[in-house]
Design a protein around this nucleic acid. Structure first.
Lengths: 214, 214
DNA sequence: TTATTGTATATTGTATACAATATTTCATAA
DNA sequence: TTATGAAATATTGTATACAATATACAATAA
């Protein structure tokens, strides 16, 4: 077994995290050690190291003597998680409002404008991407390492539950309007309006986070 | 080796965490695996499980092929951590202000009053305890699991750096006045003043968190 | 002396064997 | 048929052996 600069445990941790966040390993699935060892080509020691890390992150849930499963958040927990994100991200936006990268916001604005004209499936994909991008711009403004880490961690934990179910184009239009409100408020240097917009965005985006059980 | 309900790994994790938070294992110390195994009477596997958990928590720092050391935060990092706590705890106090347990606050107030009359070393100890208690009352008001978890985690990370260096009694008097401002504001239902008081408290308490290197 | 390099030792990283427990299977009885 | 329970199997938890690397130390040369 070749030894690398990054340990196998770390490597496996990253790979498993990616697989879970992308939904390749679905929520509620048992993480059978031997099976994963075969698939990843490592022994149980580094695999278990990765599992422990993921448990500590809150991505997996450990049941004594039964193993780890991909954490299945209850509807109520998802709600709390989104509420926590709303509070934290709004706070970041408010406190670091002056430092926000206006150029990036302008780029995002332009991209959305183009997507809007194109419409169709492209639009839907762009709306999803723009959403991630907007949250990323906001959090990256914050220079407090600890706060950034906490916000990012919550963003990760949300990922497996995120589904954009806007079959109707009215939804897309409404979502776009919401984004534009935030973007415009930022470009107009209106912190209060931007925060209010972001807060409202979290309120409405709740319905796009579903419980797999339902 | 007797098997318990809680796994050895978990048990070792808790014991090490306690030792570190209480300063029994000082900041900057190398966590030599074999030595710790001997002291705790376990093999390397559960010990390493505990170390990995502590690394993921940010309590330890891992250096590839060299092992884990108790994380030694820079002065700047401590500052950031305290700033993060200030933002989060002030937010909690503001958002959950109505839910705060006034009875507990009154008890705390009474205890401080008694300690103040006693003075001396008792006073110093009580001031320290009261500080912990106040922060605990505030965070326990919050019913958002994720937010509580994050605030508590930061409080833990702070612990090893906390030193109350008030040789002069004027310091104690000033600190007491600060506490009383918060307590009174809460009892008078003045959210704004309570938040302002808590914020100020974080500002002044900065100097009681020292960098071991200095 | 001081710097450098090779060797011995210490220490972490990984694989594997064994122990303890959970789950499944299947035979038997009501 | 269905329920029960014991044996077989699967799976996690722990200990240990070995591999890979880092550190310490001694020998040698400048």
């Amino acid at each position: 077994m070749k030894i690398q600069h990054r340990s196998l445990g770390e490597e496996v941790y990253r790979r498993l995290l990616r697989l879970i966040l992308d939904g390749k390993i679905p929520v509620g699935k048992w993480m059978r050690e031997e099976k994963l060892c075969d698939e990843l080509g490592v022994s149980r020691t580094p695999l278990r190291e990765a599992l422990i890390r993921l448990v500590q992150e809150g991505v997996l849930e450990q049941q004594p003597r039964r193993g780890c499963i991909v954490r299945q958040l209850e509807q109520d927990e998802i709600k709390q998680m989104m509420e926590c994100r709303r509070l934290l991200e709004c706070m970041v936006l408010k406190e670091w409002f002056n430092g926000i990268d206006r150029e990036e916001i302008k780029k995002l604005d332009e991209k959305l404008r183009v997507a809007e004209e194109t419409g169709g499936e492209t639009l839907r994909i762009n709306v999803l991407e723009a959403d991630e991008k907007l949250h990323e711009i906001i959090v990256s403004t914050c220079d407090n390492h600890f706060l950034v880490e906490q916000v990012r961690r919550l963003q990760l934990l949300c990922r497996p539950y995120r589904v954009l179910r806007c079959a109707e184009s009215e939804d897309l239009v409404a979502i776009l309007a919401e984004r534009r409100r935030i973007i415009n408020a930022i470009l107009n240097n209106s912190a209060e309006d931007a925060v209010a917009g972001l807060s409202a965005h979290f309120e409405t985006s709740r319905k796009y986070y579903i419980d797999e059980n339902k």
